[in-house]
Structure formats: structure tokens, C-alpha cells
Lab assay of single mutants.
Amino acid sequence: QTVVIGDTTYHLNNPEAAQQIAKELAKKYGLKVVISGNTIKLK
């Protein structure tokens, strides 16, 4: 699972954790979560 935040890319072996982290950050910073395949992007 790949999480992309701005110009930073994180690789996590746990998809659920990756999605949870993405949701928390999106909520905290008012970002939009875009999931395509096994890549999660925060914009």
C-alpha cells in the first residue's frame, strides 16, 4: 500500500493502517483522500 502526501511517499505493508492514517490526516488537515488501485493520495 502506497500513501502519497504532497511530495512524500510512504510504503505500508498494512492496507487498513494506511487507509486509517490517510483518513485521520485528511480530517486533521482538511485534505481530500483519493484512492486508486493500491495508492492513497492526500490532496
Score class of each variant (00 low, 15 high):
27 K>W: 05
29 Y>S: 04
19 Q>D: 05
23 K>I: 10
27 K>M: 09
17 A>H: 10
30 G>S: 03
1 Q>N: 12
40 I>F: 02
16 E>G: 07
10 Y>A: 05
27 K>Y: 07
20 Q>G: 04
15 P>K: 12
43 K>W: 11
7 D>V: 10
32 K>P: 04
38 N>D: 12
27 K>F: 07
42 L>K: 00
15 P>C: 13
7 D>K: 14
7 D>M: 13
29 Y>G: 06
7 D>I: 13
3 V>L: 14
26 A>T: 02
20 Q>I: 09
34 V>L: 07
14 N>T: 13
8 T>D: 05
33 V>G: 00
43 K>N: 09
7 D>L: 12
35 I>K: 04
11 H>R: 04
3 V>N: 01
2 T>W: 14
32 K>G: 07
7 D>Q: 11
42 L>C: 08
26 A>R: 05
13 N>S: 13
33 V>A: 03
7 D>T: 14
38 N>H: 05
40 I>S: 00
35 I>W: 05
16 E>V: 10
25 L>S: 00
17 A>Q: 12
37 G>F: 06
7 D>Y: 15
10 Y>W: 08
5 I>K: 02
27 K>R: 11
21 I>G: 00
25 L>C: 08
12 L>W: 12
10 Y>C: 15
4 V>M: 09
43 K>Y: 14
26 A>Q: 05
21 I>L: 15
14 N>I: 10
32 K>S: 13
40 I>G: 01
36 S>I: 13
16 E>P: 01
29 Y>D: 04
8 T>M: 12
42 L>F: 07
41 K>M: 14
28 K>S: 02
8 T>H: 14
14 N>D: 12
12 L>N: 02
40 I>V: 05
34 V>F: 09
40 I>E: 00
25 L>V: 03
24 E>T: 10
34 V>I: 11
26 A>D: 05
3 V>G: 01
41 K>Y: 15
34 V>D: 06
19 Q>V: 13
15 P>R: 12
25 L>Y: 02
5 I>P: 01
21 I>D: 00
38 N>W: 01
40 I>N: 01
12 L>M: 12
1 Q>R: 13
11 H>E: 08
9 T>I: 13
38 N>T: 08
15 P>E: 09
16 E>Q: 10
6 G>D: 03
17 A>P: 01
20 Q>F: 10
40 I>D: 00
39 T>I: 13
2 T>N: 09
33 V>E: 00
11 H>P: 06
5 I>S: 02
30 G>K: 08
25 L>E: 00
33 V>T: 02
40 I>A: 00
33 V>P: 00
39 T>Q: 07
22 A>E: 01
24 E>C: 15
31 L>W: 09
18 A>P: 03
9 T>G: 02
12 L>G: 03
11 H>I: 10
37 G>W: 03
1 Q>D: 09
3 V>K: 02
5 I>G: 01
29 Y>L: 08
29 Y>W: 04
1 Q>G: 11
17 A>V: 11
10 Y>I: 15
24 E>M: 15
13 N>Q: 12
